[in-house]
Design a protein around this nucleic acid. Structure first.
Length: 584
DNA sequence: GCCGTTTTCGGCCCGACTGTTTTCAGTCG
């Protein structure tokens, strides 16, 4: 059983209950539970009733359903609901603009049970005349179906952020005195986004909206009002613009940054004090007097809270921590002193060592670890023992010419299918840093793949496990390793886990990073650079780290060169095999 | 279905836009 499966079932129960027209509060309870279950790093099947009910949104009933699923592989309510409601109706809910009421009505009046049936009816114009449906709605349903077919409901942050920043720049150029900001999941650095939220304030709101829909980066206008409009970019990403008065900018920024769960909790706190929060400010219920709104910080301080960084706003304990004055200090991009995972043309990188060093220095780094692939990755020109020795000599020579920069000698050594490393210990012992990772056998069973990772962690020369789950966002699921077991062993050995900053990977994920920190594992944030521009991925890795409550002190590549080398040396669990003979 | 400084029942966040209506329901975030 995985938490994701439970989350999916709870989510579908919510949809099914909605189709039946059940209590919105009961439905919300399932949605909330689904979200929290999915975000739990711990495998729920191992937890008892008491631990389960400690999860926010899980009470006695839902804890019972989780345990029933763990024990029997099914949830009675879910099975019953699926018998009552045709399966196809769930897919109809995925069409934008079609909600439970419409789906239900379509089923009751026209026996619509699938997207295909609905599309056929809409094309033949047989929907007009049904309650609440005329020509326009019919067209919108067809458009919505088109969008569902295009697939992609979420985009990677790596795709969305550049688009968002470009729009922000264009808006600012069109109205230099206007105030613009990114909000929503992008501001929280979520790994995937559903749309781009932009907030604007200015003297002439209607002009901002008009200018927005005319931007060159806007392909289609979905809706347009005076304070809110939605458009599609050529990439197919939806962008929502909200325009507010400058005096409300802070409140609106808070409101539209979310997350929804975080905001609900804040509003509950406000309502207990007799206040109300909306996108225009924080108001006293009794007389409607506005207490805060211009600055985001005011909203928090009115509630007795310090400003909470957007990356933490997931209702994952941040409000409680803020109340106790225990918010963590978070990693900043400026704390990063170097990159510890880099490829050159020696394997599958696109740049020579010198170019890479120049690019790293240009970013203010003090060091860079060259970690080309090992021989097992033939396709990537992996290095064998002899080429590693050759590269070591080259790096030593390069370092002699560098004054305020250090190239670390490293390797990304492949963890083979049987768990053995791809290079012999003797050559590994000559390196400053050994990054180990899996590039094959992703479909191996849980036990086998866990054992591969464990044997890498136990190798005396390994310093870091790179992209520890192997996932590619939206393309490849993580392999089935028991990360908890790997983390425990890594903690025991003092081995670091990588947060791979490539936006397609972001591996470890935010919640795994948080779990690693809790277990006491040091982290590194690395870009896995293959061309020098990839060095700029670092900000994504920092974003993930911040979402994982990671601070500067948890991350090895915030250390200065000498301190880092000392830490890496201390990770070596045994004497170098050659040290006795080669005494200094 | 959850939850508790309004505690074991009775609340549960709030507002904008669209398309359909003629005062609003549905959907969305």
């Amino acid at each position: 059983m995985t938490n994701a499966q439970i989350a999916k079932i709870f989510g579908e129960i919510a949809d099914l209950l909605e189709l039946k027209g059940e209590s919105p509060f009961r439905i919300r309870a399932y949605r909330r539970a689904a979200m929290n279950v999915e975000a739990m790093p711990k495998d729920l099947s191992t937890l008892g009733e008491e631990e389960l009910t400690a999860i926010p949104g899980i009470g006695r009933d839902l804890a019972g359903k989780i345990r029933q699923y763990a024990q029997t592989g099914r949830v009675d309510l879910y099975e019953e609901l699926k018998n009552e409601v045709p399966a196809g109706l769930l897919s109809i809910l995925r069409i934008p603009g079609v909600g439970p009421k419409t789906a239900r009505m379509l089923f009751d009046k026209r026996n619509v049970k699938s997207i295909e049936e609905l599309e056929a009816l809409a094309r033949e114009k047989k929907l007009s005349g049904l309650p609440g449906i005329q020509e326009k709605t019919e067209e919108n349903i067809l458009k919505g179906i088109e969008q569902v077919k295009k697939g992609r409901e979420r985009f990677s942050l790596g795709m969305g952020l550049p688009v968002a920043r470009n729009l922000l720049r264009l808006l600012q150029e069109s109205d230099p005195r206007g105030k613009f900001a990114l909000a929503g999941s992008i501001r929280r650095w979520r790994e995937t986004i559903k749309d781009i939220d932009i907030l604007a304030a200015g003297k002439r709101p209607e002009n901002i909206a008009k200018a927005f829909v005319r931007l060159s980066a806007v392909k289609e206008v979905l809706e347009q009002g005076t304070t809110k409009c939605s458009v599609l970019t050529p990439e197919g990403i939806q962008v929502d613009l909200r325009v507010v008065e400058e005096s409300s900018f802070g409140a609106a920024l808070q409101y539209f940054t979310g997350s929804k769960a975080h905001n609900i909790k804040l509003r509950e706190m406000a309502s207990r004090r007799g206040w109300k929060i909306n996108e225009y400010g924080l108001f006293r219920e009794s007389d409607g007097k506005r207490i805060a709104g211009r600055e985001e910080e005011e909203i928090y301080s009115a509630l007795g809270l310090p400003w909470i960084p957007p990356e933490l706003r997931e209702d994952a304990g941040e409000i409680e921590a803020a109340l106790e004055g225990k918010l963590p200090g978070l990693l900043e991009l400026a704390d990063i002193r170097g990159d510890l995972h880099a490829h050159t043309r020696w394997s599958d990188g696109s740049h020579e060592l010198d170019d890479l060093v120049a690019a790293a220095k240009a970013r203010g780094y003090r060091y860079l670890a060259v970690t080309d692939h090992s021989k097992g990755l033939g396709i990537a020109h992996g290095l064998d023992e002899n080429r590693v020795r050759e590269q070591i000599a080259r790096i030593d020579a390069a370092n002699r010419k560098l004054s305020d920069f250090r190239i670390l000698k490293g390797i990304e050594v492949d963890i083979r299918g049987d768990g053995a490393l791809d290079l012999d210990d003797e050559v590994l012992s000559r390196l400053d840093i050994v990054v180990a990772s899996i590039h094959s056998g992703f479909r191996q069973g849980k036990e086998r793949i866990t054992n591969r990772l464990l044997s890498a962690v136990r190798n005396p020369f390994v310093s870091v496990i790179a992209h520890p789950t192997g996932r590619l966002i939206g393309e490849r699921d993580p392999y089935e390793a028991d990360l908890e077991a790997v983390f425990r062993e890594a903690a025991r050995r003092g081995i670091a886990m990588e947060i791979n900053a490539n936006p397609m990977r972001l591996d470890l994920s935010d919640r795994h990073a948080r779990m690693a920190k809790q277990v006491g594992i040091p982290l590194v944030v690395s870009t896995d650079v293959h061309i020098t521009a990839n060095l700029d991925y670092m900000e994504y890795g920092v974003g993930v780290a911040r979402r994982g409550w990671i601070g500067k002190g948890d991350v090895l590549n915030t250390l200065g060169t000498a301190a880092l080398l000392k830490r890496l040396a201390a990770m070596r669990h045994t004497e170098r095999p050659d040290r006795k003979r080669k005494s200094r």
